[in-house]
Design a protein around this nucleic acid. Sequence first.
DNA 1: ATCAATCATGCAATCGGTTGCACGATCAAT
DNA 2: ATTGATCGTGCAACCGATTGCATGATTGAT
Lengths: 330, 330
Amino acid sequence: MAVTIHDVAKLAGVNSSTVSRVLNGKATITPDTKERVYAAMRELDYHPNSLARSLASGLSGAIGVVVDARDAEAFSNVFFSRSLFAIEKVAQARGYQVIIANGAQSRGGTIEGLMKEHKVDGLILPPTTVKPALMKTIGDFPYVVLGTPDTLRSDTCWVDNNNEQGAEMAVRHLQKMGYQQIAYLGGYQKRGFTKRRVRGYQNVSSGKETILSTDGTSENAYAEAVRELKKESHADAFVCNDNLAAFGLLKACRELRLRIPDDIGIVAFDNYPLAEYVDPPLTIVDIDTAMLGEQTAQLLFRRIENGGGSQQIMLSTSLVIRASSERRKK
Amino acid sequence: MAVTIHDVAKLAGVNSSTVSRVLNGKATITPDTKERVYAAMRELDYHPNSLARSLASGLSGAIGVVVDARDAEAFSNVFFSRSLFAIEKVAQARGYQVIIANGAQSRGGTIEGLMKEHKVDGLILPPTTVKPALMKTIGDFPYVVLGTPDTLRSDTCWVDNNNEQGAEMAVRHLQKMGYQQIAYLGGYQKRGFTKRRVRGYQNVSSGKETILSTDGTSENAYAEAVRELKKESHADAFVCNDNLAAFGLLKACRELRLRIPDDIGIVAFDNYPLAEYVDPPLTIVDIDTAMLGEQTAQLLFRRIENGGGSQQIMLSTSLVIRASSERRKK
DNA sequence: ATCAATCATGCAATCGGTTGCACGATCAAT
DNA sequence: ATTGATCGTGCAACCGATTGCATGATTGAT
C-alpha cells in the first residue's frame, strides 16, 4: 500500500510517534530531528492517511452542508451555490472538507447519519429541517442554520439576511418614487423567509395591501400578475419575492402594454446575474450571499472549536437601484 | 464516547466480529443471533463509526467533485449545480458521500490531497485541471472528467455533451428559418467547449463566418453585438455561446431597434430557467445536465468497483425552439 | 455409526495514525 | 558537585471497525 508513518519513521531513524509530533507540531522536537523527518517525508512523498488520523483524534475534518431539494432547481439556486462557494473557501482555509448532502428524500436520516457515523464535525442546515424531532437527536452537536428557523429556540445558532428590513426598504423606495398602490408578488407563503418579507411589506405599506402568492414558478407569477393588472384599479408597483416572479411580471406587463417604470414599478429580491440585463434592468434587494456563507461557516467553526455559546447573526440587505423603479415623472 | 461495536456485542452476548458480519451481511449468521444483534443495535441506537470502518476497509466512502472556480459565479453556474444535484443523487443511493472542493487556488494540491490522504475513493474533475503533471500523480486512481479534456488520452474517462453537434444543429435551424448571415457570439476561445462549439458552427455555416469572442460577460457580449450590428451589412442571426451572451445581444437589439426574430434570429446554448421568460423567449440548445451528472457518477462508480476499462460518453443535445428564431416571414 | 464437508462464531492481528506515561539527557540554580 | 526541572524521544495502548484463520457444532452421505 501507500507510504505510512512507520516508513517515514524508519527512514528518519526515529519512532513513529516522533513523526506524528513533527506532523502536528504539538511537542518540542530538536531542529535536527525535525529536519530529518521532513527530509524523509519529502523523499517518500508521504501523505498522512486522514482516515487513521480521524479515527485516532475523533475528528472527521469535514463539515456537512445539507440542502433540502426535491428538484434540481433548488440546488442550482443562486443563493445556495454562492453561499456554498464562500463556505468552501472558509473550510478549505482551515483544512476542512465540505460534504454536501441532500436531505430531502430521507426524513432526517441523512443528517443523523452524517452526525452519528462521525462523517462530519459540524453541520450547516437549512431552516426547513429544523424540527423538534431533529433537535432532539442532534443534541449538542455543533450546527448552524443558514436562514431563520421557523421554530425559534434561543440555543440555536443561525445566520440570515434581514428579509423584513429588505422588504421595508423596497416598499419605502417605491413610495418615494411616487407609486401609490404597491403589491407583493410571488413566494410560497409557508416558507419562513417569504413570510418575513411579506411582514416587512405590511409594516410600511400605506395603500391597499395586495399579496399575490404563487407556487414559486415564473408561470404562476405571470398568471397572478395578469389577473391583478386586468383589474379596474390595479397595483402600480410590485415587490417581487424573487427574480423568477419578476420575470413573470415583466412578461405580463409586456403583454398588457404597460410600461415600466412609468406605469408599473418593480423591485425584486435577489441579484441574479441577469437582473441587470433584462428590459428594463431590475431594481434589486441585494443579499450578500458571500458574506452569508462566510459568516455561517465561521460561526460553525467557532462552535466546533469552543463549543461556545449560541449566536444569531442577521445581515442587512442593500438596495441596488436600476431603471425598473425609477419613474421619470410623477 | 459513543456506542461502539463492542457495546453491541456485549449486549447481544456475541463477539464484535459477529456484529461486524451481521452489519455487512458477508457471512452466514444464525437467524437467532442476527435478531439478537439487531435488537441490541436498536436498543443502543448504534451507528457504526464510519471512520473506523474506512480505515479498516481502506475505502473512504466518499467521492470528490472538484470545481475550478476563481469567483462565486462559476460556482453558481447552472450547469455545475444541476450536474452536482444528479451526482449527489447517485452517490447517496450507493451510500457514498460527496465532497466538493475548489481546485482553483492551489495548483493541483487540492486534488492530490483528496487522493493521497485517502479522503475520497474517486474524483470527478473539470477539464481545466487535466494536465500532464496531474495525470502523473493521479496514476490509476479512479477519476472521470466532466467535460472533454483538452489533452486527449485514450485511457482518460470523460462524459460530455456533444457541443459540436449542438452548434451544427443551431446553425442548421437558423438556416432553415431563412437567416442568411449567421454569426457566433460569446465565449472565451481558450475554453475547450467553446472551441468545439465554434468548430460546429464552422462545419455548417454557409455564409460569411463571423466569430465574436468575449470574456464571458454580458457586458462584453453587448459591446461586441453593438459593434457588429452597426456595420453596413451585419449578421442577421447569432448563435450565442451561453445565455449571458444572449442577454447582451438582446440588449443591443433593443437599443438599435432591431426586432427579434424578424430582423435578427437568436439561438443560445444552455437552458437557464429565465430563457423562456425574456422577450422574446429564447430558442435554446438544451444540455441534459441531469443526465450528464448521472452518467458521470455512474461511470466513476464503475471504475471504483471494477477498476474497469476506460470509456468516453458523449451525450446529444436537443433544440428547444422558441420565438427568438421563428421568423414569421422570409 | 463414521467421516468429511459445511456452518456459525470467536480470537487476534491489522488498518495508520495519536497520545499518556516513562525515562535518560540536558540545563540552571545553589 | 548535587539536585530538581525541563526537554526530547520511545514504548505501547488505543481509536472502532474488518477479516483470515481456527475451532467446535451441525449436517449429509455412505
